[in-house]
Structures are given as structure tokens and as C-alpha cells.
Design a protein around this nucleic acid. Structure first.
Lengths: 241, 241
DNA sequence: TCAATAGTGTCTTTGAGACACTATCCG
DNA sequence: CGGATAGTGTCTCAAAGACACTATTGA
């Protein structure tokens, strides 16, 4: 393509590589988990890393994130949102690599992992018990993702993305507690959720040891993935990396 | 550098260009203004665009933003924060260009513009009266920047970055009104600001027609650029592009 | 019946908003 | 003094939190 009148710029001749990395969260055994792949090749061979890879010339950044995620882990059809772009000059020993990080949330009941040729292993890890230091600056990216998740949790319905189709209010409360790292009052939680009017009674009940649980479904009407209510005031510690 | 074991990836051979674009806001004549440059060359020759340019291989993204901004407009020493990364495949007719956008805020009293060789003109425009459609997807970037500014205004001290060193509480109120596009109650505003304890009385007064104004300075102690108080509940319409 | 879990009601405190009031200058 | 601008006090109402209470099951 014609590039007349841009001759002054040196970087035209040397371009950084551009990758996407995805912080995929799910809930497993009542704990927040993140998806990691074990690297097969240098650099950081044998280390765990966030799934991700190079962007193709004819796909959008978000498409690249979806494609890489599916290729590397088999995970697809998920909630995805751009997180932050990391580009310190020496974050990758090979060359200058700028990485656009995404957050993804997958339902607790949709987890079919697949290992690609490019990695040794793919696994969910509790964010409380990571397998040592991650490759590159992926610890920073993960921390940034966690911050974002916590902060959006409080004024959006993001948390519903982590639940199975059908769930109880106390299970939802449990997610909030897990991610926020604090206990919430049961009564106030019920009130908030009910007032927000984002749940639909499925008519189903789940039997257990005590009183059966009412099972709900997330109302996917207005704006679909869009947040519908504010859980409580947003926190001040927004992402700033 | 060695790139062994990455031979599978096609994009190694064709990399996108990476640029930064900066949405610089200031306050002029009690109105929110944004800084634009008039392009000298194809594409979009003669159109107004956000300042920005290509990233060098050995600078961080933020450094690139500061450098480009100073080169193109002369503006320096400002508050800067990453906004969002735009990368639709055809957003630039020359080639695939991924742009990392930043927001910048400059004080009303620090405005010395300079036109570089690469552009015809550099000017502040009221966000209410833009000069037609901007180049590339810069209208979208600007809109995203405005959203972010509005949303952070309400729970951070970002607005102080737009003011001169010394200012009155009613001037601050005026900024909030301008950016939020609504009137605020004087009494409630005083209360909020006072309670937040982010201002320092300079001891100075400014005389005018009525009672003299008390002049304050922003407390730059804890965390410096960090937000210290929450103006009010965060809005729900966060950036999602 | 009790243990276990689900779900509701209600009191108190906090903070946002509306709005009336007081203060200090000039002429 | 009156006009103009700066700054304070106070009432009301809604939402957040604490916490005690009731409900429904199985054994």
C-alpha cells in the first residue's frame, strides 16, 4: 500500500510484534480460577503463562483473542472485554512485543479444555494457589485483571457470567464473597438482588439437607451482556497498572 | 534476537504498525477543549486528527505518547493515562495500524502550542464545536475519551488536573458542571469538597464585585496523581467501545 | 422434635439532594 | 443601604448495613 509522506518515521522499518493475552476466569469448587498454559518452547519453557498469541493482519484484536483462546485451550463462546495494553520494551526477551490483554469469563459448567501442539499442558488454577511465577509480565497482567474483575463486580452483572445457567441466590452471594474477599450480609444481598430485578425464577427447586433452594436464571433481555444494576458503589482502586 | 520455536506463527513476517493517539483535554473560557492537529499529508490530508504517531522500539508506550505529543504540539508535563486500544483491520487505509489511545489533561494555565513540520495547524477546539469529522476513527476515540473523563470525574480527583495551581471552589464546581453537562448544587458541592479534605487554603483571596473568593490549592500528598475521594457514585456507562 | 439450610423484616445510620439562610465585599 | 458574589446550615428521603426473625425441608 501507498505510504507516501510518512517517510520521516523510523519505526516504519522496524515494527513491534503485537500479541493478545487473555485472563480467563471461572468458578470451580467455589473458588475463583484462572486458565493457564504450560509453555513448550523458549522463552520461559516449562513456565505457566496466560493463553495468547500473535495477531493476524486481517482480524480485529478481539477476534484474535477469541481465536488464540480457542486454539490454545479449546475455550470458546465467552464474555470478553479489553483490559489493558502492556508494552514495556523488554517484557519479552525475543523482541519488542506489545500485548493487548483481555479479560474473559466462562460459566462454571462450560469447561472443556484441550491442549494444543504449542503447549505442554492447560489447566485451571485457583488464583489463591498459582504455580509459582508466571512467564513474562503475566503476573502483572493477572493482577490487573483481578483488580478489574473486582471493581466491575460491584456495579455490573459481570458475576452472572461465571455461574451456570441456573443457580441460587446464595451461590451468587458466594461468588461475590470469593472475588471481593469479604463476607456479605445475607439479608442485604437478597434485598439487592431482588430489587435489581435481574433474576427470573425458573420454577425449579434444588433439594438438600435443609429447606430446598429456589433456582433462578439471569434475565438476558435488555442489552444482553450489558450491566443492568449497580451492586454497590464502585471502588476507588481502578486499574492503573 | 533468537526466535527459535516460534516458526509456526505467520505474523512474525507481517507485523501491524503500532501508534499512540492522545486525547488532550483542557479547560478554556469555561469550556472543555480538545487538542487537534490538521494533517499535512495523505491520508486524510487537511483533516483534523488527534495528535499521535508511531512507537519507537526502545520506548514504553507511555513514553511514546509523551514524545509524540510534545513533538507535534509542544505540550508536555501533563497527566496521562491509557484509555483503550483500537485495532480494527481497516481503520487506517495505509496498512494495518493498531493504536493505543491515551487521555491527557493539562492545566488551564499551561498552554503553549507549537506547530510541527508534519502538520499544518494545531488548535484547541471546544468539544461542543468540532471541525467536522476527524481523521481515521478519531471521532470514536474522542468519544471514548469523553466517556472515560466523565466517568472518572465522579470518583476521582482528575478534575484538579484541569485547573490552574490556585483556584476557587466555585471554579472547580464549574468544571464539574461543564464536563458532566448538568448543574450541581452549590451547598452540596461545598460540603463534598470540604469533607473530602483534598484542598489546602492558600491564604490568598481574589477580589471581585462581591465577597472575595478564597483560593485553594490541590493537596498533592498521598499518592500524588492518585484519586483521593469519590465525588459521587460511579456511572454505569463505562468505556466498552 | 432438632439440625440444617433458605429466605424475610425492621431498625439504625449515612449520605445525597433541595433549598433557605448568612457573610462580606463595593458603591 | 442594596446588589453581587461567596459560603453555611438544615431538613428530607433513600439506600446501606446490622441483625434478629421466620420458613421449609430431612431425619
Amino acid at each position: 500500500m501507498d505510504e507516501q509522506a510518512e517517510t520521516y518515521d523510523p519505526t516504519r522499518y522496524e515494527r513491534p510484534s503485537v500479541t493478545v493475552d487473555v485472563v480467563v476466569f471461572t468458578l470451580q469448587d467455589h473458588e475463583l480460577h484462572v486458565l493457564l498454559v504450560k509453555r513448550k518452547h523458549w522463552p520461559y519453557e516449562g513456565h505457566w503463562a496466560l493463553p495468547g498469541g500473535f495477531i493476524n493482519m486481517n482480524e480485529s484484536i478481539e477476534q484474535a483473542a477469541r481465536r488464540e483462546l480457542e486454539e490454545e485451550t479449546g475455550v470458546r463462546d465467552i464474555y470478553l472485554e479489553q483490559l489493558y495494553t502492556f508494552g514495556e520494551p523488554r517484557r519479552d526477551p525475543r523482541t519488542r512485543v506489545i500485548s493487548i490483554a483481555y479479560i474473559a469469563l466462562v460459566s462454571a459448567d462450560k469447561q472443556t479444555l484441550r491442549v494444543s501442539d504449542e503447549s505442554i499442558d492447560v489447566r485451571w488454577f485457583s488464583v489463591q494457589r498459582l504455580p509459582g511465577l508466571l512467564a513474562f509480565d503475566h503476573d502483572l497482567i493477572l493482577a490487573t485483571g483481578l483488580d478489574r474483575l473486582r471493581s466491575k463486580l460491584e456495579y455490573t452483572t459481570l458475576a452472572f457470567q461465571l455461574l451456570p445457567e441456573v443457580f441460587s441466590i446464595l451461590e451468587l452471594k458466594y461468588i461475590y464473597e470469593q472475588i471481593l474477599g469479604e463476607e456479605l450480609d445475607k439479608g442485604n444481598f437478597y434485598r439487592k438482588i431482588k430489587d435489581a430485578n435481574v433474576l427470573e425464577d425458573t420454577g425449579m427447586r434444588r433439594e438438600g439437607r435443609g429447606r430446598p433452594t429456589t433456582l433462578y436464571r439471569f434475565r438476558r433481555n435488555r442489552g444482553d451482556e450489558q450491566f443492568v444494576f449497580r451492586w454497590r458503589e464502585a471502588r476507588v482502586d481502578e486499574v492503573e497498572s
